[in-house]
């Protein structure tokens, strides 16, 4: 009942609104059918935003998660000060995205800290060709600690004996990682990738604070685009259509991922060999 009221009802409402041209005031009387959806996909700014979300997904999978995994592996070994390092690396995750955004904006503005330590003089947030990657660094800084903790928890579950047995059998360090550690970490990696992709698709707070989607839409995301059309241009019908597109993409991804990737984990298989 509560779920229906708080989740299903707003979703249905957004779907209903998405069929109208509506400025948020007065009655819904201008039904336009699927025109709002056609318009979104015909708009370079929206398809650009969709593309940026895609870039964030790919970069997260290819850079952020492997980085988090390597840090987790390092901190799983018995090294000095490992408890302190774990806390330090996890700390950014407890900051809100807004605080992270403000901190990075201060560092990256001309004359800020980044100008002092960086070997190249760049306009990190003002240059449309690099702003997306600047934002990715800020996002990774905040979230890698979270994925690191997930991986650490996963690594703790792996019995030492298995790795030791592999070493006794003459496996190299890489072979142990590739054929013992990684497969056993599979369920954790699949969950972490899932959360990371959904996060990248819904990205909003940090971008809103740091660039507002600019300059010239170079860092726009679907969520930014939606808020921009809803609350700055007051075209709520169109903004609802964008919300529905976001929902469909996220939902389709989540269902497919559960069906094809997470199935083994959900069905309770403990181990599986990589792919």
């Amino acid at each position: 009942m509560l779920y229906g009221l708080l989740v299903i009802a707003p979703v249905l409402q957004a779907m209903y609104y998405s069929g109208f041209k509506w400025n948020g005031l007065g009655d819904l009387d201008d039904f336009v059918g699927l025109e709002n959806f056609r318009r979104a996909f015909a708009d370079d700014v929206f398809t650009g935003a969709l593309w940026h979300n895609g870039v964030f997904v790919v970069l997260s999978l290819l850079a952020q998660l492997p980085f988090a995994l390597s840090v987790a592996l390092m901190l799983n070994a018995r090294i000095r000060g490992r408890a302190l390092l774990r806390v330090l690396y996890f700390a950014p995750f407890v900051l809100s995205e807004v605080v992270t955004g403000v901190v990075f904006t201060l560092m990256l503005q001309p004359g800020g800290l980044a100008d002092g330590v960086s070997p190249v003089d760049r306009e990190w947030l003002a240059d449309p060709s690099i702003v997306l990657y600047t934002l990715f660094v800020a996002i990774s800084w905040k979230y890698f600690g979270f994925h690191m903790i997930l991986y650490l928890a996963g690594l703790q579950q792996i019995p030492r004996e298995l790795e030791e047995a592999a070493i006794v059998d003459g496996a190299s360090g890489w072979q142990v990682f590739r054929h013992v550690t990684l497969p056993l970490l599979g369920p954790t990696i699949r969950i972490s990738a899932f959360l990371s992709i959904i996060g990248a698709l819904q990205l909003f707070d940090l971008v809103w604070v740091m660039t507002g989607g600019g300059p010239v839409n170079a860092s726009n995301t679907m969520a930014i685009y939606m808020v921009d059309w809803g609350f700055k241009r007051f075209q709520f019908g169109y903004a609802s259509a964008v919300a529905v597109i976001m929902l469909v993409i996220s939902l389709a991804f989540a269902l497919l991922y559960q069906r094809y990737v997470l199935r083994r984990d959900i069905e309770g298989a403990l181990t599986s060999m990589g792919r």
């Binding site: 904006t105 201060l106 990256l108 503005q109 001309p110 004359g111 800020g112 306009e123 990190w124 947030l125 003002a126 240059d127 449309p128 702003v131 660039t211 600019g214 300059p215 010239v216």
Partner: peptide
């Protein structure tokens, strides 16, 4: 204009 004006707000840091 000042350096980085495309990323500068009206009010606030920088």
């Amino acid at each position: 204009f000042q350096k980085g004006f495309l990323a500068a707000p009206w009010d606030g840091a920088g």
